[in-house]
């Protein structure tokens, strides 16, 4: 747990010294590797591990996206604040240390989860760019946000396909009508709307920025809200 506490501190201090973000990312990567070695599987089950993985993904994706910016401070500060908040939340969340049921021991499941959380992280980065574009009225932020959303949408779609294949192999059907699947459909439909909306001039600029923030709110509800508040085939 001290690794997590240290990564939280580094994310927090990176609000003042940007390079400390890399330190936080490194410590979380070490923590996830250690958890994986301890559990003998990918540490991606339950809110604790998935929150850490998503936080590390946000920080990792922030590096290439942030390098394209002239003024990096505001972007990396927003990433640092988000990473610190998610890390703090993860430390309070329950750890799943029991062995996985046999149906979860497949690379279809592992890819399904890894890709989903990488997509969530990219949707988070899209939202940060959206907020910055609203603050500074700078089209460059919105353009980068669009790129992050496009890659995130690609990964999210791949995650859904892998999930469908896995569900067919494990339970004989590629789609179940549960709240989690419905919210997944909402999230996918929302980013389909976002990506198509940008092709029309009316939507570019502030409407897209607001959409990117709304998109991350839906992402968080699909990830945390549905799992915590509703009964579903997905515990997380």
């Amino acid at each position: 747990m001290w690794l997590l506490a240290a990564s939280f501190a580094l994310y927090l201090f990176s609000l003042w010294k940007k390079n400390l973000l890399y330190g936080g990312l490194l410590l979380q990567s070490i923590y996830l590797t250690w958890r994986g070695a301890q559990l003998g599987r990918l540490p991606l089950v339950g809110p604790h591990d998935t929150l850490i993985f998503m936080t590390a993904s946000v920080a990792a994706f922030a590096v290439p996206f942030g390098s394209a910016l002239r003024d990096k401070k505001a972007f990396f500060s927003a990433v640092a604040a988000g990473a610190a908040a998610f890390t703090a939340f993860a430390t309070t969340a329950q750890q799943h240390n029991t062995p996985l049921p046999p149906v979860l021991e497949t690379f279809w499941f592992e890819f399904h989860v890894v890709l989903a959380f990488m997509a969530y992280a990219l949707f988070g980065i899209t939202a940060i760019f959206g907020a910055l574009s609203l603050r500074d009225d700078d089209g460059a932020f919105e353009g980068l946000g669009y790129r992050a959303a496009l890659i995130g949408y690609c990964l999210f779609t791949l995650s859904m396909i892998f999930g469908g294949i896995w569900a067919y192999l494990a339970w004989g059907t590629y789609w179940l009508w549960t709240p989690k699947e419905l919210w997944t459909g909402i999230l996918w439909g929302f980013y389909s709307f976002y990506l198509h909306g940008r092709l029309r001039p009316w939507w570019t600029g502030r409407p897209m920025a607001w959409l990117s923030i709304a998109g991350f709110a839906i992402t968080l509800f699909t990830y945390l809200g549905v799992s915590l508040l509703m009964k579903s085939s997905h515990s997380f």
């Binding site: 419905l182 919210w183 439909g189 389909s192 709307f193 029309r200 509703m230």
Partner: peptide, 24 residues
């Protein structure tokens, strides 16, 4: 029209939001 696609997607999202409230 792309505008048709956007309207359809928008209304579909609203219907799914309604479904997400009804289903649980």
């Amino acid at each position: 029209s792309l505008r048709t696609a956007l309207w359809l997607l928008g209304i579909m999202l609203l219907l799914m939001f309604a479904g997400a409230l009804i289903m649980p």
